[in-house]
């Protein structure tokens, strides 16, 4: 299907709620996915460092479990999170169902194994003698961790990007726990780019869905470019 500018311009004018609609959807998408990835990173990095540095029985099994988590089907995660946050579930009293926070929770569950797994591989590949040298120079455990992170920064950046890609592009869990809600004036509450695309496709408005899809791809591209740039320019920041 070709998207000629001549057909795109009137399409944008015909958008159901125009800019407010798109803007709020993009905002919800970014808010949910960036928060989820930030939380996942804060959780996953220490875990990756801890597991990566130590030798203990069952380490291979643990790594396998983490790697399996990378492939969790998002609808299953959505279902489990729904039962957790539902009124009758263990977190029912927090009133999280059909909120962006519930979506953050499910994307956290999806992104964390990816970030942990890829970071673990990156951290493990930092050579033992680099860590030994840091120790030998009188570094504390914290210093050694910092040196390792610095050495593995490209791998860790890749891990975060992979986690972000998984979070912002998944549709199954956010649809279930978020409910794809937009207000009557078109302001998104829990509608993300992916669930909006699903809705537009359901209503047969394929061209609108395509445009939302283009925005999604552009966003992911933008975030990737930003992170790569940070990685190149910020080399000395960790040391």
């Amino acid at each position: 299907m070709s998207l000629e500018p001549a057909t795109v311009a009137p399409l944008l004018a015909e958008f159901p709620f125009e800019w407010n609609y798109i803007r709020s959807i993009v905002r919800v998408s970014l808010y949910v996915s960036i928060t989820a990835v930030a939380l996942s990173t804060a959780f996953s990095l220490p875990v990756a460092l801890l597991v990566g540095f130590r030798e203990f029985p069952g380490k291979t099994l643990l790594a396998s479990i983490i790697n399996t988590g990378m492939g969790f089907p998002s609808v299953v995660v959505g279902l489990v999170v729904l039962f957790t946050v539902s009124n009758e579930g263990p977190l029912g009293s927090w009133d999280l169902v059909f909120t962006p926070e519930a979506m953050i929770l499910s994307q956290f569950v999806l992104a964390a194994p990816v970030i942990t797994g890829v970071s673990l591989a990156a951290v493990s590949s930092v050579e033992q003698n680099v860590r030994d040298a840091a120790y030998a120079m009188g570094g504390t455990r914290f210093d050694v961790a910092l040196v390792t992170i610095k050495e593995a920064r490209y791998g860790i950046a890749t891990a975060v990007l992979a986690g972000f890609g998984r979070a912002i592009s998944e549709v199954g869990s956010v649809l279930i726990v978020g409910g794809n809600i937009a207000n009557a004036d078109g302001t998104s509450v829990t509608r993300t780019l992916t669930t909006a695309i699903q809705l537009e496709a359901r209503q047969g408005r394929f061209r609108t869905a395509m445009i939302l899809g283009a925005i999604l791809v552009a966003l992911v591209l933008l975030v990737n470019a930003l992170v790569v740039r940070l990685g190149n320019g910020g080399g000395g920041r960790y040391g």
Binding site: R23, V26, L222
Partner: peptide
Amino acid sequence: ATVAVGLAGC
């Protein structure tokens, strides 16, 4: 521009 406006709106 769509993305830029979207981000500005955020």
